[in-house]
Amino acid sequence: MPQISPFVIFFASIITSNMVLSNFLGMCSYLSVSGEYKTATGLGMAVTMVLTLTTVINWAVYHYIIVPLEIEYLQYIIFIMVIAAVVQILEMLMDRYMPDLHAKLGIFLPLITVNCAIFGVTLFTVIRSYGFLQTLLFGIGSGLGWWLAINMLAAIREKMAKNKLPAGMSGTAVSFIITGIMAMAFMGFSGIFTIQ
């Protein structure tokens, strides 16, 4: 497999292969926490942080533990446990050393364990057999891309909170339509970077 430059991966994962808009990952929290711009920012920040950390740790676990022991069939269980453990430890560390940040992001952390973007990015790095630098920038880029998407949706939803919509459309249905239009707009970038 030809090695793609890590920087191409970084920009591609924000723009052309955005986690939400082209890979559909992390939809649950994306839809449910996008009502308010401020909360969305908090969650975006937390996801970016956890995503970067867990992707890198899972990469190391995969290459230094799972492959040498030939237990690839257990990889899902191991990845999930690593993610849960990292989130737990991060929460405790934040509580101890950065209480301000913890007060702001703490409520989002448990939500993140079941955010499929985190797990999905890990699986992508394994399937595409990325190296360390590629993995690191893919993790950061995917997090930033997710953050960008949720912030855009939250901003649009806040603006249209007072608009009158057809019956049954407010809330989830309209979020889907907005996301669809956003995804279409982002298709305009396709061709600048390609990683898939």
Binding site: P166, G168, A173, M187
Partner: peptide
């Protein structure tokens, strides 16, 4: 466009809308 991501969002969004409208 139907094979691209946006179409998936539009179709599921419309389904949810239809069901929501019926429930309302």
């Amino acid at each position: 466009i139907m094979l691209m991501p946006p179409a998936a969002f539009f179709i599921i969004g419309s389904f949810i809308w239809l069901l929501g409208a019926r429930a309302a």
